[in-house]
Design a protein around this nucleic acid. Structure first.
Lengths: 334, 334
DNA sequence: ATAAAACTTGGAAACGATTCCAAATATAGA
DNA sequence: TCTATATTTGGAATCGTTTCCAAGTTTTAT
């Protein structure tokens, strides 16, 4: 293998009887090359099996046709593939490639990764986290363009794309109300993070908009795992006046809630409707009944970030803070 | 942002009062540079904020310090992160970066991706699939080093790393036998693929090694989804002589089997032990009881592939076909 | 037919590193 | 002290493109 390809643009030029400038011109299809010349060069290229050396091009043009992608916990989440896929799809569309580094959240590694990417003169860097939160990226990242994905900096000084949690919380709740539910419980995460507070806010606003008074006994917070959901639901089911629906912070908690509901002898959705957040296919589609849930726009965020970096629009003075909608995935639990 | 860094090795040389060769030498810590000179150069480097242009280095040395990573369905599987993480960890250790392209199985895109990577003079390419199967990679991939990951070519002409399905099937079955089970059902996928046939083979051998006669009524094949597992288990539970344990093709089928077992009024593991394959955390850890399963060595395959490409050992004449063990993850279902 | 404008073309210079060679300097051995 | 050897050093050549300029050719307008 690896038979080294030593053919250069000069060989092509000689073989086609033209100058190197001309070869370069046809390679980059510049105008102002006569049809015959172009054909001759094309022929030489295919005859000699020429392959351009991208390092030489990058050196001369200062464009690497690459964007960096730095992420934290890629291995521990099923969402990673979607965001990478989104970024990759648009990168490819612009003839760019993704330089990927996974850091496991190690700041030293992050900084080294950025340094490596700067050396490679990337067009920009996507800094992605696997759950929505504020971050402080290494400062050297400011030497190129950045797009924060599923995260943001507190002072909003960097462009960012995150899920529209508030609207998601609102719409989930509204969906329940629309089905006739008036007494709706909310099982939330017990640690404040953007998703936690914004979904709660959405829940409240939806209630208010439909003249349902907020009942604090209906919202209970636990750890965001199935057993947390189970506990929370258990508590709710001990209430004297039961709700007819529940909105869960995520699919994992909903999974636990399912168990509690079933153990309590209630049917889903007839006796208790359930809606949740994340759309972890594996889980949501396979629970009984299948779980209705708000999807996190991972693919879309990937696309947005790459598009922002490569789209070439002037970067506005104040960095955009984009919220992407979380589509409702209807299944059987409502 | 993007304040262009125009400092080169020549600026450093001038500022430090040395020649460019010397600067290069300290940059690559070659021996034969006096301590004072080295210090002076280091000083100049940090004073001027020099950052090497990797394109120039690559052009001259023909080493890009990068490896390609081509994969098919990255978005649709929760395993993608693990294999990328494995590859990335060793790539980084060798100061290399991953160039990632996701192709969704499109052969034209695959070929274009390889071409791009060849232009970039990668050290080698990892060609990874998301489920174990034979493949035929684009021919141009042969112009560099390749490592096939979770796949192989029929004629075994390319190095490959895959899970040791046979041994996994054997050990899963043996684990059940070790717990005293003698009548063991096997719910398998209904489409022959390497995992399907090899796990079945492992099951058979384990039985044979423990003098249990193979009973074909105990093995039933269905689609590899929860409902397939449910159907299969239903069929098994209608047998006049019930097994006391079942080995499932994957966690998803096991999920369906759980439902059937519970509906039939049996307890897991007391009345029916369950073991399966894949270790999809999200599922396996959250079923009740938590599922004992064989883990697919995704991280390990990622490491192996990158190590093979970068390790620098002479490539043996006959390409290695590596089998990686699938560790048993003990939970509560056996 | 001629001048002006528009296309084509060749090839030198540049991008920024590494590598090699020859020269300069230091060290050791006698 | 002087030569032989080892260590340091500077700088030209090189990697393979793109870009620019000047020159040559064609087309158009008058």
């Amino acid at each position: 293998m690896a038979m080294r390809n030593r053919i250069t643009i000069h060989d092509i030029a000689r073989h086609a009887g033209v100058g190197v400038g001309t070869v370069s011109r046809v390679l980059n299809d510049h105008p102002n090359v006569s049809a015959e010349t172009r054909a001759a060069v094309q022929k030489a290229i295919s005859e000699l099996g020429y392959r351009p050396r991208s390092a030489a091009k990058t050196l001369r043009t200062r464009k690497s046709l690459a964007i960096g992608f730095i992420t934290d916990y890629i291995a521990t989440t099923p969402f990673a593939g979607n965001v990478i896929s989104g970024a990759q799809d648009v990168a490819w569309q612009y003839d760019h490639i993704l330089l990927l580094v996974n850091t496991n959240g190690d700041p030293a590694l992050e900084e080294a990764a950025v340094e490596m990417m700067l050396s490679r003169e990337v067009e920009g860097i996507i800094y992605a986290t696997m759950w929505h939160r504020p971050v402080t990226p290494p400062k050297n990242i400011l030497e190129t363009n950045v797009a924060l994905l599923d995260c943001y900096v507190e002072d909003r000084s960097l462009p960012s794309v995150v899920p529209d949690e508030l609207r998601g919380g609102y719409e989930a709740t509204a969906r329940l109300i629309q089905s006739g539910h008036r007494r709706i419980a909310f099982i939330n995460h017990n640690i404040p993070d953007p998703a936690q507070v914004l979904r709660a806010e959405g829940y409240c606003r939806a209630l208010a908009d439909h003249d349902i008074t907020y009942d604090e006994t209906l919202v209970v917070q636990r750890v965001a795992e199935p057993y947390g959901g189970y506990e929370a639901m258990g508590r709710i089911l001990r209430l004297s006046k039961l709700p007819s629906a529940v909105f869960c912070y995520n699919d994992r908690m909903a999974m636990g809630a399912y168990d509690a509901i079933k153990e309590h002898g209630l049917r889903i959705p007839q006796d208790m409707a359930v809606i949740s957040y994340d759309n972890q296919e594996l889980l949501a589609a396979n629970l009984h009944p299948a779980l209705t849930t708000m999807e996190l726009p991972h693919y879309g965020m990937g696309r947005w970030a790459a598009q922002y970096l490569l789209g070439g629009e002037l970067k506005p003075a104040s960095p955009p803070q984009v919220l992407l909608a979380c589509p409702l995935i209807e299944r059987q639990s409502v």
